[in-house]
């Protein structure tokens, strides 16, 4: 299926958010995730199914003011 990963169209085979992250190579944190603009805690990723067209955001620490 095709999802939007950080704003870019991306093809994945995985059916859950946790599997998608592993498939895409997000294996080393720290990062946090959101699905369709809603926060998905790390503990809920494996129970969070993905559907075609879903918007997934993966964000990590960055410098801030």
């Amino acid at each position: 299926m095709k999802i939007m990963l950080n704003g870019a169209p991306t093809d994945i085979a995985a059916k859950t958010l946790a599997d998608a992250l592993a498939e895409l190579g997000y294996d080393d944190g720290p990062f946090a995730t959101a699905l369709n603009r809603e926060f998905v805690p790390a503990g809920e990723r494996s129970a969070t199914p993905l559907e075609d067209g879903d918007a997934v955001e993966v964000i990590a620490p960055m410098q801030g003011g």
Binding site: N6, L24, G29, P30, A60, P61, M62
Partner: peptide, 22 residues
């Protein structure tokens, strides 16, 4: 110190590097 969050590509590791420095 203040910190922020931004999108990260798979394998980029920039977030990890910055977080380690802090």
């Amino acid at each position: 110190v203040t910190v922020s969050l931004r999108r990260e590509a798979a394998g980029e590791r920039a977030g990890r590097k910055f977080w380690d420095i802090v």
